[in-house]
Design a binder for these strands. Structure first.
Lengths: 266, 266
DNA sequence: CCCCGCGCATTGTCCAGTCAATGCGTGCGG
DNA sequence: CCGCACGCATTGACTGGACAATGCGCGGGG
């Protein structure tokens, strides 16, 4: 048949050694020079580029990372629980990042930066909020961090006329939670519709979230409705795959008919 | 500061042209030779490798793909609805792939290949099923296809002693659904616990699902319990990110306290 | 008119280098 | 003993080639 490319054989060989424990998570891989010598004898590899190509495969698979100028290291993941069902809880969502944290080992300090602005949202958001042409929205953009490394992005959008002059626009923490503010305005959130789009991050997202090469993200669109069926809030969450496990529960009685999705993709 | 590498500038330039509509989805990109000529004048690029490096960035971002020997083309996505909440429905899950299909345009024919075996499951599955050391499990492995292109993998595991000799072991469709079979055995499924792990696919998964270079997957572990709180079934779904949008709903009253995750990552 | 084989454009793999950037550690000077 | 500058190991960027693999289309033969 067709022979496997040498760089693929190298990648396969190293991948096997990672999964069988020869190179455990956190350990250092052989350097390019060492690999060149080894596979030079085994497969007649003569160019450093071929070695780099093989290592590049594993980097893009999210298995290893290059720490210049120290060498390549096996990735070590520590995942936080991301729980979209917690959004409609009475408790302010700020405590969730704490409760979630307890599930992992403690000792890491969570923080978040909040930024409020008035924006003309993207078509995907306009569509879900049901905005009229030209109508604007209030945006609450949050970056959630743990020990100063960003964990996820959380941007909430609400029809501007609904929240102008209220605590929703307050830049900084709102102790009782912004969902409570919306409840006080007569729009208690009772139903949430969640969409997850999996993809590779854009360069600006890579920078904002300090993502490695082989790290996918989930774009989580959460559309929440009041008891009268009006879309009140759309939240765009960006969830890095290497730092989260997305968790939720289902109950037998909760089952209704499958809703259609009338919206386009973002 | 530090100057942006040339291949990054090329990637940024092409990415911008993709997102602003200069190269719409499905269209062909300039060939390497054409780009070499263009950026040779603009940035003094002289080597084809540098052009390839820039294109490689976009390939790994899932924005373009190389169709050898035709050229590079902008990716065109068509996503199917993946709805984990449908699992605990009365209706057999086979119909779901149909109902989901209707949401997109019609005309594609779904099919699935089923394979039943007795296996020694991975530690992650053993843990969730609560298997004793040495205890085996029955496995129902499904590949779901649409017009003969695979859409997702769906492997269900049940304690062997529970289903040996029952219709669960029947290789092929079970008209009333395997969940109904488990119900007849006195283990009606009433509660589901769902975990989603985002990552890049392994090479064998790339082959089985015919995945492109920049396509992440979600490993969806679904653990379902009977009314007495016993873990009855663990299902491992592998969901390619380019062919799915994961959707579910939440209701205000459904909120309980956040469950802890006693299990390790897979 | 139809079919088949071969040419050709394009991407894939690999080579053998050069020079730059970057942290870490060593050793020297105060 | 402390601090800082410089060397060094390592990865990053790029060059300028060579030859292989692969489908599609065109032209010639039936």
């Amino acid at each position: 048949m067709k022979p496997t490319p040498v760089y693929q054989q190298i990648a396969d060989d190293l991948r096997r050694q990672i999964s069988d424990g020869t190179f455990p998570p956190g350990s250092q891989m052989p350097t390019e020079a060492e690999l060149l010598e080894k596979y030079g004898e085994l497969h007649g590899v003569r160019s450093r580029q071929t070695i780099r190509q093989g290592l590049g495969v594993l980097v893009h698979e999210g298995l290893i990372e290059a720490r210049r100028p120290k060498g390549y290291f096996v990735i070590q993941r520590k995942r936080l629980v991301y729980r979209p069902q917690a959004e409609l809880r009475q408790k302010p969502p700020e405590v969730d990042i704490f409760t979630n944290l307890v599930q992992e080992e403690d000792g890491r300090t969570p923080s978040q930066e909040i930024e409020v602005s008035i924006v003309d949202p993207t078509p995907a958001i306009r569509e879900r909020l049901g905005l009229e042409p030209g109508e604007l929205a209030a945006a609450r953009r949050r970056v959630r961090k743990l020990d100063d490394v960003p964990y996820n992005l959380n941007d909430s959008y609400v029809r501007l006329s609904l929240v102008q002059g209220t605590d929703f626009m307050h830049p900084g923490d709102v102790a009782r939670g912004t969902n409570a503010v919306l409840g006080e305005l007569g729009h208690e959130l009772v139903y949430g519709f969640h969409e997850f789009y999996l993809r590779m991050p854009m360069p600006d997202e890579v920078q904002r979230l300090q993502l490695g090469a082989g790290v996918p993200v989930a774009e989580h669109l959460s559309t929440t409705f009041d008891s009268e069926g009006n879309a009140v809030q759309v939240t765009v969450n960006l969830i890095p795959g290497d730092r989260h496990v997305i968790v939720f529960e289902t109950h037998r009685e909760a089952g209704t008919d499958a809703p259609r999705i009338p919206w386009g993709n973002p």
